[in-house]
């Protein structure tokens, strides 16, 4: 089988989340956006003494940084040996169909969206993993507010940013 069905993915993801939360596992939630400013601090050699946010994220940033390295390996190995999806590409098929065929357009939009996405995630205090998966599973009010706002703005943007019919 080269693709897992959605329900198997959901069950496995719930299992991984519970293992991460449990005291036998990591005793913390699963998150995947704090590592970005953490790596920015590492790469641009920012002094943690000077920037309060870096002190704030020292531990979760390092934890997610190591997890991210694992995710890169897990994603790479699975894409090469199981899903056979490994190949270099610049424009996604869906972008070609519903947006345009311009490399520059895709790269500029990716760059801008990546930039805005991390600022958004850090302002809200989490992303799809930290807020949605980990937060809503705790039935936290903050994460449910975030989840609702994200879903609504995702669908509104999808409606106006892409063309409806295939080119």
């Amino acid at each position: 089988m080269s693709r897992l069905p959605w329900w198997m993915g959901g069950i496995l993801m719930a299992g991984l989340l519970l293992m991460t939360f449990s005291v036998f596992g990591a005793d913390r939630p699963l998150g995947a956006s704090t590592y970005v400013p953490y790596f920015a601090g590492l790469i641009f050699d920012l002094d943690p003494e000077k920037y309060s946010y870096l002190q704030h994220i020292k531990n979760p940033g390092a934890w997610e940084g190591v997890m991210l390295l694992g995710a890169l390996l897990g994603g790479f190995v699975t894409s090469v040996f199981i899903t056979k999806s490994f190949r270099f590409s610049v424009i996604p098929t869906g972008w070609k169909k519903y947006k345009n065929k311009s490399v520059v357009s895709r790269l500029v939009w990716s760059f801008v969206a990546g930039f805005v996405m991390i600022i958004g995630a850090r302002m809200a205090g989490g992303c799809t993993s930290g807020h949605f998966l980990s937060g809503v599973s705790q039935i936290a009010i903050s994460s449910m507010v975030f989840g609702t706002v994200v879903m609504v703005s995702l669908i509104i943007t999808g409606k106006f940013f892409y063309r409806k019919k295939e080119k």
């Binding site: 939009w109 801008v112 996405m117 958004g120 302002m123 975030f146 879903m151 669908i155």
Partner: peptide
């Protein structure tokens, strides 16, 4: 943050 995140998630995919 949620609006910025949702909007950029739709564009970035």
């Amino acid at each position: 943050g949620g609006i910025l995140f949702g909007t950029s998630m739709a564009i970035f995919g």
